[in-house]
């Protein structure tokens, strides 16, 4: 079960990496980065999984708990990823307003002309 989750996370990471390296549209690049980060969150959730483990709340009779630390790390990574995605999209909007395109190579070409 855990291995299947790791394989799925690796697949999602590869999809994100492929998108980041091959796409020219800045919005798609932002989405690809977000997909890559999501794969790491999937892997964190898989690491935290304990077969038969209960929620980490101490109660009578419970001896096996799920470690909450990876969950905390996953939540933090989600929040940071959302913040970075928001900034990246804001910068994309700023560049689109000036250059009239979201094609990253076209924008690089225009900045080179301007120097």
């Amino acid at each position: 079960m855990q291995n299947a989750a790791f394989v799925a996370a690796a697949l999602v990471f590869a999809i994100g990496l492929h998108g980041m390296l091959t796409r020219r549209n800045m919005i798609r690049i932002c989405i690809s980065i977000s997909v890559m980060e999501s794969s790491l969150v999937m892997a964190l959730v898989a690491v935290a999984y304990v077969p038969g483990g209960s929620a980490p709340i101490v109660s009578d009779g419970q001896t096996m708990f799920v470690d909450p630390l990876p969950h905390a790390l996953a939540l933090t990574a989600i929040v940071i990823g959302a913040g970075i995605l928001a900034i990246a999209l804001a910068l994309t909007v700023a560049m689109y307003r000036h250059y009239g395109t979201t094609d990253v190579l076209a924008v690089f070409g225009k900045t080179r002309e301007g120097q």
Partner: peptide, 25 residues
């Protein structure tokens, strides 16, 4: 808030996102 500042910020953010993903990995 110059156009080239946005481009430089975007480039840095993308490459830093990869760096952050590797650190988290």
């Amino acid at each position: 808030q110059r156009p080239d500042s946005s481009v430089a910020g975007f480039v840095y953010l993308m490459i830093a996102a990869v760096s952050g993903a590797l650190l988290l990995f």
